[in-house]
Design a protein around this nucleic acid. Structure first.
Lengths: 209, 209
DNA sequence: ACGGTATCTGGCCGAGTGGCCAGTTATTCA
DNA sequence: TGAATAACTGGCCACTCGGCCAGATACCGT
């Protein structure tokens, strides 16, 4: 309880700036060492603060984790939705969806690696019991895809014998696997993957059944 | 240190039987409560033994976890490989691959849910440093798929302008996402999904470019 | 300058975990 | 049957984590 050091230098931040700084530190920490190893102390150490600061700005670790997911999902949506809605034809919608998703991943690699880590490892315990954030938030993007596919099918731009729900799941899966690949293989070629992926699923739209 | 109870009943097992029993208990426990909550004590309690038994039969928790993955991967391979190799035509190979994978999932739901949990949460720390089991073992199945796709392409049963590697990743992703769905939605229709998935990817083989 | 408030530090605490082992019981084999 | 060995119990230990807080420090309006 005795102040040993003469306090060389200490910075204070405004509420918002500090919260954002902590969220970014948490994202980078999780992306680097994984969720299980990303303790509050470690996150705090990355930006040279005491772990008490995190407790001060967030209600708890759950709150911090939730904020990460919220921020990333929001950034993701803001990037993708307008690009998809700008497309008109069937193949263009699919291509826009796939490529904008993967482009966002390329630009914000750590963001998505961190979210993947969280969705994989981070159990969120709400008052009403044990629950997972899971893909519920990210499913917004999946729903967007499914809606677009259903619309295309209605317009005759997608084979009638295909289930848009299944197709949406398959496409999302092919996209969601990318952060995985990035974790294991730093040289994974996102651009090439996006291009090939779009080509494969183009088939389903090109030849309307 | 005093033996209070008169030892109502206690069973001993042979090495192999006990190890297997513990692995199964671990699989079910992980599948039910998730990796993070699956402590040795909890796993032991499920089959009514002391957690010391696990330490006795396994070098440590890592060893147990690794055994789970090895066992499941082996069972998976034993189920899938012959079914894929038995197929001859392009569409049949794809369909056999997808359907046998998903059939195995349906029959051994907990096995794969547990492995997903492990791959998601379980960091394996080897003596030489921090590593993940990750998809390395499961990639055997992915390699099998990629090899088959490359073979089909060589035989003119797959569009020449498709990258078999990317296609293999996309298909594996669509398959690997299923245990996820199972966790969130108990009523997920694997059979329907398998059928639709095969139909979608059939396109790439039906019309050789 | 100065007092009040916002921010921050550093350590303590309880909970939970895996590793470990001394002692207990079952099994096996000579 | 009577060791010798295998299998098992139950609890202790060191460790880590998140939550928490008393006290220290920076900031800001007056």
């Amino acid at each position: 309880m005795v102040a040993v050091e003469p306090e060389v230098e200490r910075r204070t931040f405004t509420e918002i700036a500090r919260r954002h700084q902590i969220v970014l530190a948490a994202i980078d920490t999780i992306a680097e060492v994984g969720f299980a190893q990303a303790s509050l102390a470690r996150i705090a150490a990355r930006i040279g603060i005491s772990k008490g600061v995190i407790s001060y700005h967030f209600a708890g670790k759950e709150d911090l984790i939730r904020q990460i997911v919220v921020d990333v999902v929001e950034a993701d949506r803001a990037y993708i939705v307008p690009r998809v809605l700008a497309a008109s034809t069937g193949p263009a919608v699919l291509r826009a969806y796939i490529e904008s998703n993967l482009a966002f991943m390329r630009e914000h690699r750590n963001y998505l690696v961190a979210v993947v880590e969280i969705l994989r490892n981070g159990r969120i315990t709400t008052p009403d019991g044990r629950r997972r954030i899971d893909g519920q938030e990210l499913d917004v993007a999946a729903h967007l895809l499914q809606e677009q596919l259903a619309r295309l099918q209605g317009a005759g731009q997608l084979r009638r014998d295909f289930d848009p729900g299944v197709m949406a799941v398959a496409i999302r899966a092919a996209i969601d696997v990318v952060p995985h690949r990035l974790i294991g293989d730093p040289h994974f070629d996102i651009e090439h993957y996006a291009s090939e992926l779009a080509a494969i699923f183009d088939l389903a739209t090109r030849e309307a059944g």
